[in-house]
């Protein structure tokens, strides 16, 4: 287990190094930092001084090393657009994205798992077949379309829920939360649904397929032949076998949820990191883009590593074997 942990951490570090290299290349090839930072009437002299001050005259490898060291400490320099430290900007925006993703993920799990179980246990019921069709729609309709439809129905037509922003947030010093006010909670609903919908249908279909497979397994047949009651058969014997692979895939999807949040945040002008990233792209604000890339990749890598570890804990077959199989 320890060796496994070390191996996974080294892998994760390598992935992060590659990502950081891509971010570094963005600095070199996207836009010109000097003209972004200096007023338009800056002299050649000013520009040369600025280049020297920023270390742009140093050898590439030195610049690269400096970038990696800074990035590892969370320092991505100043935003070109509003001259504030990039890390401050991201820290401000992080809670909005985190709360959105958290609510969407919970929603996706809380609905997707029971619906998947239901459709697996009643495969021929009309409700199951209806859900299968709806879930196919959920997977194939682009998320921005569902977002716009949600706004059209619940904001424009019915006027029940806001179509943009986070509502009133409470500042806890290190975190701003929308969970504590009515307007904050109301503002969360539509974006969370939009973001959750795809994941929910995915989880539902995954649970259904996995559970149908498990219900055909020999160990379920044998348990049935021992007169194990249906409730125990389905919700104990079959469910755990179903959920272990589902949780793994969901964990890997969680990173995707953060990435997909870019679209949701843009549609709902949600003041999170994704919205910040889109704005940065419009201004070729390279430090913000690079920092977002590195941060999201970091979250991805951390989640994947944790999921791998959890999978090893949950599945006894993968746990370090203390007692090897013995002969007859």
């Amino acid at each position: 287990m320890f060796a496994f942990l070390i191996r996974r951490i080294i892998q994760a570090a390598l992935v992060m190094l590659v990502v950081a290299s891509i971010a570094f290349l963005m600095f070199r090839f996207l836009g010109d930092p000097i003209s972004n930072l200096l007023p338009e009437d800056a002299t050649v002299q000013d520009r040369a001084e600025m280049r020297e001050k920023m270390g742009l005259n140093d050898p590439v490898l030195v610049q690269y090393g400096r970038f990696i060291v800074d990035a590892a400490q969370g320092d991505f320099g100043q935003s070109y657009r509003n001259n504030r430290p990039v890390s401050d900007l991201l820290a401000e925006r992080f809670p909005a994205t985190a709360e959105l993703v958290l609510v969407a993920a919970s929603l996706a799990l809380a609905l997707g798992i029971p619906l998947g179980i239901y459709t697996a246990l009643n495969p021929r019921g009309w409700l199951s077949q209806g859900l299968q069709v709806v879930s196919l729609l959920g997977i194939s309709v682009p998320t921005f379309v569902t977002g716009i439809l949600l706004i059209l129905v619940f904001s424009v037509t019915l006027g029940w829920l806001p179509s943009f922003g986070r509502g009133t947030v409470v500042d806890l010093g290190w975190w701003t939360t929308g969970f504590l006010t009515t307007s904050g909670l109301k503002a969360l609903i539509l974006p969370a649904i939009m973001l959750a919908l795809f994941q929910m249908t995915l989880i539902m279909r995954l649970v259904r397929a996995e559970m149908l497979e498990v219900l055909r397994a020999d160990y379920i047949k044998f348990a049935k032949a021992r007169g194990i009651p249906n409730r125990m058969l389905h919700f104990k014997y079959a469910l755990k076998n179903t959920l272990i692979p589902v949780m793994t895939i969901f964990g890997l999807q969680l990173g995707g949820l953060i990435a997909f949040a870019i679209i949701t945040e843009t549609v709902f002008q949600w003041p999170g990191m994704g919205f910040l990233f889109i704005q940065a792209v419009n201004f070729t604000d390279v430090p913000v883009m690079a920092a977002y890339l590195v941060l999201v990749s970091f979250i991805f890598v951390v989640i994947n590593t944790l999921v791998d570890l959890l999978y090893n804990v949950a599945d006894p077959r993968l746990r370090a074997e203390r007692t090897p199989a013995r002969g007859v």
């Binding site: 020999d218 160990y219 044998f222 007169g227 194990i228 599945d315």
Partner: peptide
């Protein structure tokens, strides 16, 4: 019939490798 299975009539199948639930002791 479920109450009879296991209690009155037991069954043993072919494959011991797959007859046991892998995630329970």
């Amino acid at each position: 019939m479920r109450r009879i299975r296991g209690k009155e009539i037991g069954a043993i199948f072919q494959d011991p490798l797959t007859s046991l639930n892998p995630v329970y002791t």
